[in-house]
Design a binder for these strands. Structure first.
Lengths: 339, 339
DNA sequence: AAGTCTGATTGCAGCGCTGCAAAAGACTAT
DNA sequence: ATAGTCTTTTGCAGCGCTGCAATCAGACTT
C-alpha cells in the first residue's frame, strides 16, 4: 500500500500537483477556494509530505547539527536543551554529535565529508581544535562556533566575555577578603584557549586590585571535570602555604575541589572559598551551593540559531561576527557562607 | 560550480553510473580493476555521494531519533552518550528530541506526522504517555521503548528489572539495620508506571524481611528531581517520627534529600541513610557519595540499537519483545558511611 | 564447436518533490 | 470590444541516486 503523494491529492482536488505543493508550503498566492479544496483532499487522504523528496528537490535537509565535546557534561546538555527548541522554532531539526574532544573527529566534522548535505549548518563547540585548525574547513558549511575561539571572518562566534567574567569572579573573592587566591583549570597550550582567557581574567582582577599574582597558584588540568578539580585541590592543600580561595574554571572543577576540601575536614567558605564557572544546575543544589559565573545560555542558544539561520538563508557569504551574550556573577554559599 | 555526481565519476572512469554506485556501496561483485578505476576517479574528482538523493531513492534516511523527556537530566544524557556511538557504529545518525514529558508532544512524535521519513526508527523514553497511549501509534515506525512501560507486542522494550532492583536497594537499607524506611518518588497515577514499579519493589523488600510497610512513609513527587527530593525530605523530617533511611527513586531525588538533611544539621548516613537509583556520575562525587542502583546503560543502549536495527531491516513486522539489561547495587557513603 | 552457466556490468525508470517560466484567467483601462 | 496588467495556476524537467531485470563476457561442459 503506497503512501499518498502530492499527485494523489492533486487528482482528488482537481488541481495540478504544483498547486498542491503551493498550498502545502504556504507559497505564493492561492485563492481561498482552491486552498480549501486542496486542504480537504489532504485531510481526506491523510497526506503527509515526503521530507526526503523535498530535501532532494530543494537541496536542503532542514536539519542542523550541534556538536559538543561531551553530552553528559551539564553545561553542554543544558545548552543543548536551549538550542533544540530554538532550532525547532526556526523549522529545523537538530542532530547531535559528541566528539569527546577528539581533534580528528572534530576536524572530520567541519570538513563535512560523508555526511555532506545531511545538515544545512552547524553549531560547533570545539575542544580539541585550535584556532588555526578551525580555519581550514569546508567554507560552504554555514558555521557558528560557541565557546572561546574567535572568528576568522568566515564563521560567527558566540560567547561571553570570558576575561571580564573571570575577572569578576576573582574580584569577588578579593572583595570578600581573600588574599591567597588560586586558579584551577589552566591549559597553556594551543587548544586551551578557553582556559587561557580565564587565566587572563584571573590576572586582570589581581592587577585591578593592585595585587601580585602568585604563579605557583595557577594549576593546570587536562579537562574541566570533577576528578581534575579534586586532584588539583588536593595538590594545593598539600603545599606549605595553601590558598584561602580558589577560582575554578568550571562548576564541575569547583565541585571536585569542594569534595576534596570537605573530605579533609576543611570548611567552605570559612577555610577556603570557592567560585566556579558555568552555573550548572548541580551547583544550585550541592552543599555548599556553588558561587559561579552564569553565562546566559538561552541568549547564547538563540543568538547562535539566529545567526545560523541567517547564514543558511543567504546566497552569498556572510561576514563572520563576534557576538557576546550576557553573563553575571552569582554569589552563593561557597563564597558567602550559609545565610 | 556544481558538485560532482555519480555520473561525472562514471564518465571519467569509463563505466556506467550504476557500476560507480556499486563500488561506492560495496555492493555486488566488482572486479578489482574496475574498482580501482572507479576509486581513482572518485579521488581525482573528490566525489562525495549525495545523501539526500540516496535517501529518496532508497526510502530511508539513515537516521534514528532518540526521544527523552529531559536532556539535562544526567541519567538521560549519560544514556544518550551511550546510544550515539552505538548507532553510529551501525551506520546511523542520531537525532535528538526532548519532550519535557509533555504528553501531547510525545504523542505527536510516535504518530510521526510531519517528520515522517526523517528517521527510520525511534528509541523512545516516554514520560507523559501511559501504556495505553503508546498503543495507538503509527505501527509502521520501528520503535524501541526504554524505561518502565511494557511492550504491547508491536514494539520492543528495553529496561532493567525495576522491581528486583528497587527491592535490592531497600533490602540493603534493611541489612544495614534501618527500621523506619521511607520512599520518595511514588506517582500513583497512570503515567507513573516507573514510580509504581519502584514502590512495588519497596513493598517486596519489606515483605521479604517480614516487615510491615508504613504507608505514610511513601511520599509522592511530581518529578524525579532535586527540588522534589529536597521538599519531600523536609516533609519527612517535620514529622514526629522521621525515618532513619530513605529509598529515593532517582539519584537526583537522593541528592535533593541529602541537601535537606545536611542543611538541617543531620548526618548521612548516621542519622538517615540514603539510597538512590540510576548511578549518575554526580552521585560518585558528591558528599557523601550516593549509594545507588546502577542500570547497565551501555547494555541498554546497545540492546536498544540492535533491536531497532533488526526492526528497520525486516520487511515484515517483528514481534515485540521484553529485554532486560543488568543492574547492580552500588553501596557508597550515603549508606555505609566514610570508609 | 556449440551450448550452458556464472558472474560482472549496464540501462531504464522512477523515488516525490520543487524551481522556473510560461500559460491561463481575471480584471482594468482605453 | 481590445489591449494591457496583474494574479493564479500549470507543465516541464530534473534533483542524484538506487532497484530491478536484462545484457554481456568469459569460462566451463559436453
Amino acid at each position: 500500500m503506497r503512501e499518498t503523494t502530492l499527485r494523489d491529492v492533486a487528482e482528488l482536488a482537481g488541481v495540478s500537483p504544483r498547486t498542491v505543493s503551493n498550498v502545502v508550503n504556504g507559497y505564493a498566492r492561492v485563492t481561498d477556494t482552491t486552498r480549501e479544496k486542496v486542504e480537504r483532499a489532504i485531510a481526506q487522504l491523510g497526506y503527509r509530505p515526503n521530507v526526503l523528496a523535498r530535501n532532494l528537490a530543494t537541496g536542503r535537509s532542514g536539519q542542523i547539527v550541534v556538536v559538543v565535546p561531551y553530552l553528559d557534561t551539564p553545561y553542554f546538555s543544558e545548552l543543548l536543551q536551549a538550542i533544540i527548541p530554538a532550532a525547532r522554532e526556526a523549522g529545523y531539526n537538530v542532530l547531535v554529535d559528541q566528539t569527546d574532544g577528539d581533534p580528528a573527529h572534530e576536524a572530520s566534522l567541519i570538513s563535512q565529508g560523508a555526511r555532506r548535505l545531511l545538515f544545512d549548518g552547524m553549531i560547533f563547540s570545539p575542544l580539541g581544535l585550535s584556532q588555526q585548525d578551525l580555519s581550514v574547513r569546508d567554507q560552504a558549511l554555514p558555521l557558528v562556533v560557541l565557546g572561546e575561539r574567535t572568528s576568522d571572518g568566515t564563521f560567527d562566534h558566540v560567547g561571553i566575555d570570558d576575561i571580564a567574567a573571570s575577572s569578576a569572579a576573582v574580584s569577588h573573592l578579593i572583595e570578600i577578603g581573600r588574599t591567597r587566591i588560586a586558579a584551577i583549570g589552566d591549559q597553556p597550550y594551543p587548544t586551551g584557549e578557553a582556559a587561557q582567557l580565564r587565566t587572563r581574567g584571573f590576572r586582570a582582577a589581581h592587577a585591578a586590585a593592585g595585587r601580585p599574582v602568585d604563579e605557583s597558584l595557577i594549576i593546570g588540568t587536562a579537562r574541566f571535570n570533577r576528578v581534575d578539580g579534586a586532584t588539583a585541590m588536593a595538590a594545593l592543600l598539600d603545599r606549605a602555604d595553601p590558598p584561602d580561595a580558589v577560582f575554578c574554571y568550571s562548576d564541575l572543577v569547583a565541585s571536585g575541589a569542594i569534595h576534596t576540601l570537605l573530605q579533609r575536614g576543611l570548611r567552605v567558605p570559612e577555610d577556603v572559598a570557592i567560585i566556579g564557572y558555568d552555573d550548572i544546575e548541580d551547583g544550585r543544589y550541592g552543599r555548599p551551593t556553588i558561587s559561579t559565573i552564569s553565562p546566559d545560555k538561552k541568549a547564547i542558544a538563540r543568538t547562535a540559531v539566529d545567526r545560523l539561520m541567517l547564514r543558511i538563508g543567504s546566497p552569498e557569504p556572510v561576514p563572520g561576527v563576534e557576538l557576546r551574550a550576557a553573563h553575571r556573577l552569582i554569589p552563593r554559599e561557597s563564597t558567602l557562607g550559609r545565610s
